[in-house]
């Protein structure tokens, strides 16, 4: 049973990963990535890592990829342009992009090979952790929580600080653009109705940030 599940999930993960690169339509690429991430979470489940599996789906498939889908659905149809740039017909940047992509891909390959040869191959002949129900066994939230707050506390905090910086940076970048009210000639118009209406009564003028009387 677990072998069947493993092969289904593994084939799903590889197909998804290939699909992300091969598919031309960015929307389908994102969907392929979602399929890849869900297959990975099944692999995590087979490794008795229930918490990691759930977090994989909640955080990546349920939040990060949602934003990807959101953006791609809004600005969709850019697939051809990416292809043009890669083949250098649009501008002279094709060769540079291809070279940069090859270098980055090579770097990832070397890093993965180091990780695989260093640790992964040792476990090939052995079985995973045995399953024993209980609050403090391998892969459960309690076990991972304890590790995060004791042994890996520094790395955990540094990572969360990095995410905080990214979030603050995104807010600063987004604030730089003008709001709706600034270029609107009607923004300062004040009608007698505004006096009668209490603030916060939910009009459309309030919705676009105009004065509310």
């Amino acid at each position: 049973m677990s072998a069947v599940l493993f092969f289904i999930a593994a084939i799903g993960a590889i197909t998804g990963a290939v699909g992300v690169v091969v598919l031309r339509n960015p929307f389908y690429s994102v969907l392929a990535l979602v399929g890849h991430l869900v297959s990975l979470s099944v692999l995590f489940l087979l490794l008795r890592a229930e918490f990691v599996a759930a977090v994989q789906v909640v955080v990546y498939a349920g939040a990060v990829m949602v934003l990807y889908v959101f953006v791609v659905a809004y600005v969709g149809g850019e697939g051809e342009r990416i292809g043009e740039r890669l083949h250098g017909t649009a501008s002279g940047t094709g060769a540079a992009l291809r070279l940069g992509g090859a270098v980055l891909g090579g770097a990832v390959l070397v890093e993965l090979l180091i990780a695989l040869l260093g640790t992964g191959l040792e476990a090939v002949d052995s079985y995973g952790a045995g399953y024993s129900p209980g609050p403090r066994t391998y892969g459960t939230p309690a076990y991972i929580g304890k590790l995060l707050l004791t042994r890996f506390l520094l790395a955990f905090e540094v990572a969360s600080f990095l995410l905080l910086i990214a979030a603050v940076g995104a807010v600063v970048l987004a604030r730089r653009r003008g709001g709706l009210g600034e270029e609107d000639p009607d923004a300062d118009r004040f009608t007698p109705l505004d006096l009668l209406r209490p603030p916060g009564s939910g009009t459309t003028a309030e919705g676009v940030g105009r004065r509310t009387g």
Binding site: S41, E50, F51, A54, V57, T140
Partner: peptide, 10 residues
């Protein structure tokens, strides 16, 4: 499941 509510959120 040992992950409880996380299952629902997933």
């Amino acid at each position: 499941v040992s992950i409880g509510p996380l299952y629902v959120f997933a």
